[in-house]
């Protein structure tokens, strides 16, 4: 089992003819993901890596039965790409694009809520259900199937933790990168809820960072609802206030979003907090009684 994606997932890649879209499509195909269609306006009728390309998402849905979309479209066109996917009947949209304007995301997330379509991202690495399906850009080699569910605001930190867990023989059910933007689709609590209900997930790793108060709310949710052992890490303890640390959402402003507050909230919720990324795997091993 896994959450959100599995062997049955049928993916359409929006922006498949671009450099990024093409490279990551090849990686997904190598991982066994069913990439059934690509979409680039004006390039309909072409084939990319033996995948048929369509002019619209609606065509990809109609012709190939795509149910999930992955977006590699530059920021200026990203909102349009997301809205098109939701309008075409796609049920789950994953947006990798970064630097999407926040006001665009406010409109997009409201539209998705109204349509009842799930969005992951933007500015995220996507997700991988180990051994089954990958939708996004997480490196194939870091994942091994197993009992640990990961949800994270950071791409590379997710890879780090997956790699360390895999090296210690602890595989993952699904790893979900929710992205580093202030306004985004799926958030910590949405994923935690799914992990909590997923029988294949026995342990949860949650990786947060400075900015906003999503981690604090997630900690409250865990304290009230989650019985599975949870390990947490927060990046940005040494970040200066008022500066945007790479991710648009990683900024301490108005005394809100500090690492120490998030760590305190985690501890209060009974989450084992790692001091550095290497320690995350150690703490999961400990929770699994294997250290």
């Amino acid at each position: 089992m896994s959450i959100l994606i599995n062997q049955a997932t049928k993916v359409v890649v929006q922006g498949i003819t671009g450099r990024e879209g093409q490279f990551h499509t090849s990686q997904m195909l190598a991982y066994g993901t069913q990439v059934v269609a690509g979409m680039t306006p004006g390039k309909g009728g072409q084939m990319v890596l033996d995948v048929p390309v369509y002019n619209s998402v609606a065509e990809a849905v109609k012709e190939q039965g795509a149910d999930t979309s992955l977006i590699f479209v530059p920021a200026a066109g990203a909102a349009d790409a997301m809205l098109e996917a939701a309008d075409a009947g796609i049920q789950f949209v994953v947006c990798i694009s970064e630097n999407v304007p926040t006001l665009d995301m406010i409109e997009v997330t409201h539209y998705f809520d109204r349509k009842g379509v799930r969005l992951l991202g933007p500015n995220c690495p996507g997700l991988i259900s180990a051994g089954q399906c990958k939708v996004g850009i997480i490196p194939n080699h870091v994942a091994t199937p197993g009992p640990v569910g990961i949800v994270s605001r950071s791409g590379t930190l997710t890879y780090e933790v997956m790699f360390a867990l895999s090296q210690r023989g602890l595989g993952q059910s699904t790893a979900v990168g929710i992205g580093g933007d202030p306004v985004k689709g799926t958030n910590f609590i949405d994923v935690l809820k799914l992990f909590n209900e997923d029988p294949a997930t026995e342990y949860i790793v949650m990786i947060g960072e400075i900015g906003g108060t999503d981690e604090e709310r997630a900690a409250e949710y865990i304290a009230a609802n989650v019985k599975k052992p949870t390990v947490g890490f927060i990046a940005g303890q040494t970040a200066p206030p008022g500066r945007r640390m790479g991710h648009a959402g990683a900024i301490i402003s108005g005394g809100e979003g500090r690492a120490e507050d998030k760590i305190a909230a985690f501890k209060k919720a009974g989450i084992a907090v790692a001091r550095h990324p290497d320690e995350v795997a150690d703490l999961v091993m400990k929770a699994a009684g294997r250290s």
């Binding site: 950071s154 590379t156 990046a235 303890q237 040494t238 970040a239 640390m245 790479g246 550095h276």
Partner: peptide, 22 residues
């Protein structure tokens, strides 16, 4: 990676160093 870059600064500090930059 932004998250790893922050975590690297934090680790530098944790082990007694002082980061010069992000």
């Amino acid at each position: 990676g932004a998250g790893l870059a922050m975590a690297t600064m934090d680790a530098v500090k944790l082990f007694g160093g002082e980061p010069a930059n992000f």
